[in-house]
Nucleic acid binder design. Structure first.
Length: 591
RNA sequence: GCGCCCAUAGCUCAGCUGGAUAGAGCAACGGUUUUCUAAACCGUCGGUCAGGGGUUCGAAUCCCUUUGGGCGUACCA
């Protein structure tokens, strides 16, 4: 039983014995004691005052005395303005360090027997990945790691959007203007090559629209009748009909894209257990529609289209199948949800998708619930905000995007420059240097994107967004390297548990207190699907360690103090490494 | 029009189920290296938590409302 739990139980008991009232556990509020006061854990007495019918000060005094006599861990207490601050014995904290924090499995929860799918990335195969996708990928990967560490079995899935009119646009443009260009002949990465033709399509298409408009056609009409869009639509029909030439072209160009994506994924350090392709799943969902009709959840309009009425849930009527029997987005998402569940029988399923689809997922989950799918309540949309540039929103077709590959390369390059300027690479091998620059550059980028709450929009200024000082990835990586350096100077390997330490300095105590919070932070991050909680926690830990490092000597301390501080340092490094690992960020031993 | 989300220091962000004088980082200014990595540490400056009501012993946090921004409201995905 945790100390917090003991305090809560005893407080309830104290209220019962002292005031003859029954207080429920939830109304005992504990919080961390503010730094300026003595103590580590604080009981807020205000909720108890109505039972004690005494002033907060007297109530605190009485509860405090009761707790101190009945809990050996509490060695002192003080009351300030109705806040009962409890001082926990140093012995308790030392025991925490020795018997919990130093364990290899600290912060790793045992299996909870539940399976969760995290679907993320879900790219279109007509253009390379950009900064927005990077946020998506890092979020998805990190959430998967966090859920795994908190006891889930995790399946990472990627639903690739590999078909549709937008794919045909790239294919058509390549066919018309490509002159047989290939990744090999052009030296372009496959996804970039295909993306180039997506832009070409748009340019040529606009040209045709302008021509038509200048001939007196309205803009709307021109958009619909321009030869290029007609050809693209024809191509889509041919694709759906299984025309061999079209399929061959599609396979060839998608193959280029996948090769490119694989490289980008590898660079970002993300991976997947299962790929789904929309070219397989887009026909799904019709059975579900029939099921819904049979159950009376859906209804048919006179034209034959199928709808669901969600007005009683304060939403709209929503189309789920066209009059001609073809699918809409919702149709295939219904089918895909069933497919995924049939494949894995997971208890929960997380969709990492941008917040412009909030409404879609709300409706999707609601429909599945109305269809009586027991697993529908385990579905969750992890919605995240767009990444903005100083110039505004990113738009692929207009070329105002921050390309993922370029961004990563630039980050690594900046890391190289910074590191060399600091003159820290003497004696490092060429291989290690490359590895280090990659770690730091990527660490900076990942931390920058993950430290912000997912649902918030994010402003990315290429000129100044990514720093290497303060609340950044490199700061935390540096702290880790520093600790490893001290440990290696002391030839420290394993933690002795029998040093004679009995009292702690304030900074040592603070460090153990914050270290012991790691498991609950991990749990909260898993519940909220929020890597940001981990990021902010690790930063606090690193910051506190740096202060400790600066103020209290380690190697020059007396032997038993030295051993203790080494152990404290090793524990800090281990938590930093684990925490950063949950964010997909590696930490170097030297930098 | 309707629905959802956001608004905290000059900038980028924390702030747990309401709790003590609202916290970091960056930027600016000033200090700290013959001592374990100065990508660090310490200090100064900086806020009517968008505005207004309400609930409460107590509100950045909950409710209502106004304003500003974003997204959605497609037989696109």
């Amino acid at each position: 039983m945790t100390l917090e739990k003991k305090i809560i139980d005893l407080t309830v008991k104290a209220v019962n014995e002292l005031y003859g009232a029954s207080l429920d556990q939830a109304s005992v509020t504990l919080q961390e004691t503010r730094k300026e006061f003595e103590g580590q854990i604080t009981v807020v007495t205000f909720p108890i005052v109505r039972f004690s019918k005494k002033s907060p000060e007297i109530t605190g005094q009485e509860i405090g005395e009761y707790l101190q006599t009945n809990l050996e861990e509490i060695v002192a207490f003080n009351i300030i303005k109705g806040f009962l601050n409890l001082t926990i014995s140093d012995e308790f904290w030392i025991t925490q360090l020795n018997h919990s924090i130093c364990k290899a499995d600290f912060g790793k929860f045992p299996s909870n027997g539940r399976k969760v799918m995290v679907e993320y990335s879900s790219p279109n195969t007509n253009k390379p990945l950009h900064l927005g996708h990077v946020r998506n990928n890092l979020l998805g990967f990190s959430v998967a790691e966090i859920l795994h560490a908190s006891g889930y079995e995790v399946v990472k899935a990627n639903l690739v959007n590999d078909r549709g009119i937008h794919i045909c646009k790239s294919m058509l443009a390549w066919q018309l203007f490509g002159n047989g260009e290939t990744p090999e002949s052009s030296g372009l990465k496959g996804d970039h090559l295909v993306g180039k033709y997506y832009v070409v399509f748009d340019k040529e298409y606009k040209k045709q629209i302008n021509d038509l408009v200048s001939q007196g056609v309205t803009e709307d009409e021109a958009k619909k009748t321009a030869p290029l869009i007609r050809q693209a639509q024809d191509m889509l029909l041919k694709w759906e009909a299984g025309d061999p030439d079209t399929i061959e072209l599609w396979k060839k160009m998608n193959g280029w894209v996948y090769t490119g994506f694989d490289e980008t994924y590898r660079k970002m350090g993300v991976d997947f257990d299962k790929y789904y392709y929309e070219s397989d799943t887009y026909i799904l969902g019709k059975d579900t529609i029939q099921e819904g009709l049979d159950k009376g959840v859906f209804f048919k309009k006179p034209d034959g289209s199928v709808w669901i009425d969600l007005t009683s849930d304060r939403l709209d009527e929503k189309l789920v199948l066209r009059a001609d029997g073809t699918s809409v987005y919702m149709t295939q998402d219904l089918g895909t949800a069933e497919l995924k569940h049939d494949d894995f029988q997971m208890d929960e399923s997380i969709y990492v998708v941008g917040n412009e689809q909030d409404y879609h997922f709300k409706v999707l989950f609601l429909i599945l619930d109305k269809l009586g799918k027991s697993w529908a309540k385990g579905l969750h949309h992890l919605s995240y905000g767009m990444v903005d540039l100083p110039s505004g929103k990113m738009k692929s077709r207009e070329g105002t995007v921050v390309d993922a590959d370029e961004l990563i390369d630039e980050m690594v390059e900046t890391a190289r420059q910074r590191t060399e300027e600091l003159g820290k690479v003497e004696g490092f091998s060429a291989e290690y240097k490359e590895e280090l620059y990659r770690m730091i550059g990527l660490g900076a980028l990942k931390y920058f994107l993950l430290k912000v709450e997912p649902k918030k929009r994010l402003l990315f200024d290429p000129q100044e967004s990514i720093d290497f000082q303060g609340n950044t990835g490199p700061f935390i990586q540096y702290t880790h390297a520093r600790i490893i350096s001290v440990l290696s100077k002391a030839s420290y390997s394993t933690a002795p548990t029998n040093e004679q330490r009995v009292s702690l300095t304030p900074l040592e105590r603070e460090l153990i207190v914050i270290q012991s919070k790691y498991p609950e932070i991990l749990k909260a991050a898993a519940e909220d699907y929020s890597p940001a909680l981990i990021a902010n926690y690790v930063f606090e830990l690193a910051k506190l360690y740096n202060k400790f490092y600066h103020e209290e000597p380690i190697l020059k301390a007396e032997e038993d103090v030295k051993q203790f501080r080494l152990k404290l340092s090793a524990a800090t490094a281990a938590i930093i490494k684990k925490g950063m690992g949950l964010l997909g960020i590696e930490v170097p031993d030297r930098m």
